[in-house]
């Protein structure tokens, strides 16, 4: 893999060189404790010292609410994939969120390609950046604390500089555009990168064993844990909205008053909503909160493993940070494994 060194003082200028490759989106501070990816007028508003944004990158490629097509009784329908959607460069993306996108790629870009997703995905350039975990991060346990693919460029903080890995030909074009700011990797950089790697590994405060978890979940299908968690759960949908890999959506029509025309839309859905598994005739497969939150865990940690060979959780910690009643995925898994009792 091609690697180069970018001195930290050249970062603003380097970001300037990325702008011709698309609309720049960067992490910004939106409140005392929260961050979000967005546009900035001033490069000094970029907040690289963030751990996680409220929403992951899915908001760019799988919009919270999206028009799928317009319909009209007289003229038929026309799809509305935004061909004109701007190219984007999303800068400062952490490894867990890159893995989140890779998991969405499996779902939306697999056997049945989702055109709305892929149209935007193909126009998103990803410039990743490494990070130091906080107490909520458990991406080391999910194997998503580093990336080998899924980025155009990836910057690792090695002290006075960044080590820049080039992941794609587009990434190569980017560093060529910023050639004057970059230099070759030298001995001290190699040592610094290895020290950074150790430092990141040793910074993890949270660990959870995901090996054999699918079997343990099957064995603990009727566990008391689900009742306890179900009693607490507000079914508010927050965890699904902020999850990098929750991809369910509900489809609905918005009608025009004049009649005969409207828009078919889709909107993020959650398996925690009471009517998620409600079917025609009024039967609800998961009428209780216990069964709904169990379903969410089963899909992430068991069903997805059967289908794709890995859990769909990327260990970003968002569901724990933003859960209003403090439901902690790591604690739930440890309880299922009988490693702790609450």
């Amino acid at each position: 893999m091609k690697m180069v060194i970018l001195p930290k003082e050249s970062l603003p200028e380097f970001i300037g060189h990325l702008c011709p490759f698309g609309e720049l989106h960067v992490p910004v501070k939106v409140s005392e404790k929260s961050y979000a990816f967005g546009r900035v007028n001033d490069l000094s508003d970029i907040e690289l010292n963030y751990t996680r944004t409220i929403l992951p990158l899915k908001k760019y490629v799988f919009k919270p609410v999206d028009v799928m097509f317009n319909f009209c009784a007289a003229t038929g329908y026309e799809t509305t994939v935004e061909e004109t959607d701007a190219k984007r460069v999303i800068f400062g993306v952490h490894p867990c969120d890159i893995h989140g996108l890779k998991i969405l790629d499996l779902v939306f870009g697999g056997k049945y390609v989702d055109g709305y997703y892929s149209a935007r995905r193909n126009k998103a350039a990803i410039v990743g950046m490494d990070c130091i975990p906080d107490e909520f991060c458990f991406c080391r346990s999910t194997g998503t604390d580093f990336v080998d693919t899924g980025f155009d460029l990836f910057l690792s903080d090695i002290g006075a500089s960044y080590l820049v890995r080039v992941g794609t030909s587009l990434g190569d074009d980017m560093i060529r555009a910023a050639d004057s700011l970059l230099r070759e990797v030298q001995e001290q950089d190699r040592q610094a990168y290895k020290r950074r790697s150790t430092q990141r590994r040793e910074s993890f405060q949270t660990e959870v064993q995901l090996q054999e978890l699918p079997e343990i979940m099957d064995l603990e299908y009727d566990s008391e844990v689900w009742r306890r968690v179900g009693d607490k759960c507000l079914s508010c949908g927050t965890c699904s909205m902020v999850c990098p890999t929750c991809y369910c959506y509900a489809v609905f029509d918005e009608l025009d008053l004049a009649g005969g025309s409207g828009r078919r839309q889709r909107r993020w859905d959650s398996c925690l909503f009471k009517d998620y598994a409600l079917v025609a005739g009024g039967h609800n497969f998961r009428p209780d909160r216990d069964s709904r939150i169990k379903n969410r865990y089963f899909h992430k940690q068991r069903g997805f493993v059967s289908q794709h060979g890995r859990p769909s959780c990327v260990g970003c910690g968002r569901c724990k940070v933003y859960c209003l009643v403090g439901i902690d995925i790591v604690e739930v898994i440890k309880e299922l494994r009988s490693e702790i009792r609450v």
Binding site: V30, T53, K59, L234, F273, Y322, L324
Partner: peptide, 26 residues
């Protein structure tokens, strides 16, 4: 579904978690 869902779709910081305010969103 609850107001929280719309709130997170809009990427607003959580006033209950972050500020400890009495929010009925959930």
């Amino acid at each position: 579904y609850a107001v929280c869902t719309d709130c997170k779709m809009a990427e607003y910081p959580c006033l209950l978690v972050e500020q400890g305010w009495l929010c009925l969103g959930p």
